[in-house]
Design a protein around this nucleic acid. Sequence first.
DNA 1: CCGAATCCTGGTAGATACTG
DNA 2: CAGTATCTACCAGGATTCGG
Lengths: 228, 228
Amino acid sequence: MKKYGQQCPLARALDVIGERWSLLVVRELLLGPRRYTDLLDGLPGIPTNLLASRLKELQAAGIVARRMLPRPTAVAVYELTEIGRALRPALAELRAWGQRYGPEPDEADAIQPAWVLLSGSGRPTGLPAGRTVELRIDTESFQLGTDGSLLTVTGGPAPVPDATITMSAETLYRLMTGETTSAPTLRQATVDGDPDTARLAIDTLHGALTGTAGNDRDKGHHAPVRLT
Amino acid sequence: MKKYGQQCPLARALDVIGERWSLLVVRELLLGPRRYTDLLDGLPGIPTNLLASRLKELQAAGIVARRMLPRPTAVAVYELTEIGRALRPALAELRAWGQRYGPEPDEADAIQPAWVLLSGSGRPTGLPAGRTVELRIDTESFQLGTDGSLLTVTGGPAPVPDATITMSAETLYRLMTGETTSAPTLRQATVDGDPDTARLAIDTLHGALTGTAGNDRDKGHHAPVRLT
DNA sequence: CCGAATCCTGGTAGATACTG
DNA sequence: CAGTATCTACCAGGATTCGG
């Protein structure tokens, strides 16, 4: 890529992740290792040659690593390195800004549960450490956990979840925009396992798309999420 | 600009500030209102037509406002709106990441005092609220202040500074990379006004280019700043 | 001198087809 | 499934010109 040629930390960061699609690739990988075609699905609109280019550039920058899954599933997956995971706070701030001040979303735009779920990542949660919840949205699975005080969100099914919650994408969006609270959400969802744990997870997600970066200041100025 | 067409807060943010040079324009304006030619100077390498385009796009997005300076200096300046200033935390995170993990700076790259000074912005400072310091680097002036606990950095001379510090760019870089401490820096600088206030400001800047986002964890892994 | 608009060239994005 | 190859259109980069 063309470099800025400026000895400024910000410019040097943009030299590596400033190109089109780069940060969105990182966004996808924040949920965990992904195969090439998974990335294509998660990045609607990206030309396949660009995805290949970006993955190579991100590998060269040490942000992404390509790894072969162990037998018997001998497929290649891409995952974030420690350097790549270090971008999480920056992405969270950009996401928070986009939430509050970004352009109004177009109804024709694509939307995926993973994108809105990521806004729940990093929120303070009452979920006890070590407790995990599997969240199933339509056919996709996500894993909710905590580092002790903050919510973590990863993709893929949980090995041994304390609770499994199944709900539709619509129900999830309404919960996270604050349009509905936990109680009606629970009525429209199916819970398997410990109901209290499920309730804690759902409470953490409630209203995650309002306010800024997980803090609940200045509710009401957020751009509403439109359903497709 | 070409939009991503994704109803994701991050993608919507990038729709507006994801283009080449956009965030660097915001970086320049974080120091205060700037004229068109000041921006050209602060963004070495940008073609003038691109700067004009970016400024128009940023105005359309409500991030930047164009204003006419009052008499007698009837010139146009560009400045950040509240929406634009809200990008500061995101830029700080990106800058911190670039500092720690970005590519090694090239010796041929341009460097400006303002870029490294911005890394001092947001650091915890012992400077009392209301106290301001004018920092003169070669021919440029900057204003250091605080919101009570965190350092603020703006461009231009301070109206009534409690202290004025003059030093060379080299001395500033050595101070901020942690290569020298406050004492030798003060010996190479000229201080006018209250020496204690000057010392507090210099202490805040010391080592700002090490560690992450103003926190001083994991010193020593930073990329060194090279002088031109 | 400030604040651009214009022209030209080369590279990159976007779309699609194709291959190991 | 995981990319590579090919083509077109547009955008970035550079220089020059033009109007306050």
